[in-house]
Design a protein around this nucleic acid. Structure first.
Lengths: 349, 349
DNA sequence: CTTCTGTAGTCAATCGATTGTTCTCCAGCA
DNA sequence: TGCTGGAGAACAATCGATTGACTACAGAAG
């Protein structure tokens, strides 16, 4: 009988430690110790060789479940994010995956997937031996802290702090904001507004603090009318920008807390007949490829998101569960110059 | 001693089936059967009640490793994607996560994370009992098919076919292209070009086929000079668009195979002093929020990506490993009208 | 010739849950 | 009274790998 199309192969027989041991003529404990390079094992080179060859020949792979039942380690970390569509998290995941990989861990990423209630159960299910630690990225208010505390494994918050938590890894958002403001000041701006994020978001608070610090460091007034809060969405950005630009003594530049809001802010400026950057400069926190496709291309502050992911993994892997983790990622922050910032125009002086 | 800050709680003692059984005064097999609602179990309502209460009181959660060692099922699926930063995959993940959740499965998503070699090992490691099935999304040429075939568990390709594979779930890309071409024809265009994807990509071939079909169905010439191949990137799109628009008898409309290329195409048009849509209309496959922020806002064809993810999960969960899976997701495909398409201008007629 | 020491492994308990089989009552029936 | 049958649970093997304790043997030391 000749086959015309390749058949889908059915499950090959499972090879266990015993099979290898038997074929190699040793005890299975020896095979196990060879695999894990147990220092307590005394073995002749030729025997080790034989074992390795047998493993190879049979295509043996240790069963993860058995191994982790015995050792209560899974060599997996879990990363929870609010939304896969947000490029900020994509970058964090990238860093985390690489770091996990180089530490010999796998990373499983999941989102609450719209179903808010499901998250609780999901976390719960992963906690039962599927992962050795969990990272919670996001910027929610954090009423889940109690759940995290009750977790039978190490965890850490990524990119947010929460009242009462002493386990987090965050970016130096203040510095990002300061850098942005300094950039604007360097261009000659004095009246600089801040289109902030939601007051409930820790990142938003830190970015605002950085803005304030930079302003006062430059001897500029931190006029409360120069600050408007939005919700990290384009629609919110549009509303807040409209408000900001409608006030008398219009700002000549705006630091927007994130790119989504900045999209809305650019939109608002356009609607109001204001030209960017001629009439008003716009700079936003977090660089992403979208920024270069906006019109005008958006000047941003690139934050080390990938390093944030990396650092979070390192922390969870190396710090004892009862230790505090209060890390601020210090890798370089830089302004990515595009077309949305320029010296203040003559009209606005 | 009073504490000023909440202390990080150390791991709570692990509760096992035995603990529950002992406290409830029954055998652990009873507890197990209650949990899994084994139909073979005969139990008095009051005993069941007692067991459930004990589980609750102790906060018992079954150990995933033990359970999956015994049953050789993990109730997890693995999803591999090439890149978290690509919004196309974000949408697929969303659908897959929800579908998995409602089937009682968890989903772990991973990317090859830049490290191409690592992927092989990663897949390998997940295959050893960590997941019950794997989904491979992406559009690579697929020299990994041999690895997949050797996998001791069910797998399926998502959004791509590969020569010789009979396990895939794909979109109706042809229909997407046809719809786009019909939209352009409806606007009055006759000379319609196709900025295609890489010839190695299955999706690109199907989109091109759809373009050809729609053209000949309308009795329009499928002039090979109306087709240019790019690589699904902005840079590639720029180059291909430039080529297309430099030919004599310039097309009045272009169907671009994906949004990334379309970004480049818009750029090229701008550079050449062509106005979109006045001089040339542009439509792209796959809708994403980026499209509405481009200038002009990009008209797209929305494909059912989330349904693709859902369907793939359903297939892997319900189809036998030796069965063929050759699914085309038939959910509605629609044109999302924005500003980049319009009737051909008087100049180009 | 013993005893000791180190080498090269072997033995067997264990991790926690699942599941086919078996046991123990007790009521009902002849 | 003796037997049967079913309800209600208990028993115990099993999944595959890990690891502390133990053994067998050869050569060296005393």
């Amino acid at each position: 009988m000749s086959e015309t199309a390749p058949r889908n192969r059915v499950a090959p027989p499972k090879v266990t430690l015993n099979d290898v041991a038997t074929l190699a003529g040793v005890d299975r404990s020896v095979v196990s110790r060879v695999i894990n390079s147990d220092p307590n094992l005394n073995i002749r080179p030729q025997t080790r060789q034989r074992v390795l060859e047998t493993i190879d020949k049979l295509g043996y792979r240790p069963n993860a479940a058995a191994r982790s039942l015995r050792t209560s380690r899974s060599f997996m970390f879990g990363l929870f994010i609010p939304d896969f569509a947000n490029p900020v998290y994509a970058e964090i995941i990238k860093g985390a995956e690489m770091a996990a990989g180089s530490l010999g861990y796998g990373l499983m990423t999941a989102s609450s997937g719209g179903v808010r209630l499901a998250r609780h159960h999901y976390v719960d299910s992963l906690a039962q031996g599927r992962v050795d630690g969990m990272l919670f990225a996001g910027d929610e208010s954090g009423h889940e802290l109690e759940q995290f505390r009750a977790l039978p494994l190490p965890w850490v918050l990524v990119n947010r702090r929460v009242d009462g938590s002493r386990r987090y890894v965050i970016l130096d958002d203040e510095r990002g904001s300061r850098l942005a403001v300094e950039h604007l000041i360097g261009l000659g701006h004095r009246r600089i507004a801040h289109l902030a994020g939601p007051e409930t978001a820790d990142t938003a608070r830190r970015r605002r603090a950085g803005y304030m610090a930079a302003m006062s460091a430059a001897g500029l007034p931190a006029d409360p009318r120069l600050i408007a809060h939005a919700d990290y969405t384009p629609a919110g950005g549009t509303a807040a920008m409209t408000a900001l630009m409608s006030r008398d003594e219009r700002p000549t530049a705006v630091l927007v807390a994130n790119v989504a809001s900045a999209v809305g802010a650019l939109h608002a400026a356009h609607e109001m007949g204001l030209s960017v950057p001629a009439d008003v400069s716009v700079i936003a926190i977090h660089d992403m490829s979208l920024a270069s496709h906006l019109v005008p291309a958006l000047t941003t502050v690139r934050m080390p998101l990938s390093e944030l992911g990396r650092r979070a993994i390192e922390m969870i892997a190396t710090r004892a569960p009862e230790d505090d983790i209060t890390e601020i990622v210090t890798d370089p922050v830089e302004v990515i110059l595009r077309d949305s910032t320029a010296p203040p125009g003559p009209l606005s002086r």
